[in-house]
Amino acid sequence: MTRLFLIAILLGSCSSLPISYKDLPKDIYRLTFGYPNVEVTQGIFNSYPYSFAKVGFGKGQSVIMILESIDDNLFTWVGQDGVKLITKNGRVIKSMGLPHDVDIKPSIHRDNFASGEYFEVVNFSHPILLNADLLSFIEFKELSNLIYLENNMSVNVFTENIAIENIGWSNENIYYLDSSNRVIKTTQHLHPFLDQMHIEFYLK
């Protein structure tokens, strides 16, 4: 009788594990090695009625952000959790709703991905840093290939070395441009306290 009772308890335990412990190994794996990259297929692309971007930070899970509007070549993307990104030629120039936001005033001399050195102004939040000088140096890196919507695509790769000297912060952003010079994929550093951001753009 005792054994039967214990077995009943044990079987009951196995049948309804709480989500927290059941998912623990998976959660630990994800925290350590990151979330698996879910490739956007043609089917997924077709299922969205709007243009969208796949956006993620570091090893974190990617989210889909929908293109809300285009105004004067400024693309506004919105996420389900209220985060907004404004991009210009694939470069994030403003964010809203992130733990640390950025607001870049791009150089008027900046001509898309023309190689050169540009002096810009940037504001950060959390903590606030106003009117910091941002030095951006763009150059063509190489011609390469990547898989985009299940197709092998030839892309031009540009690098952007950014630096804010007075806080000792510098990093490298990478842009992948298709044959019509549209950024389809990029990795960028928005803020010293944020992980590297990776974005794939899917425009309709």
Partner: peptide
């Protein structure tokens, strides 16, 4: 104020 703000970036 600005010095204080920058310090948070200089000295994380």
């Amino acid at each position: 104020k600005l010095v204080a703000q920058i310090s948070e970036y200089l000295y994380p």
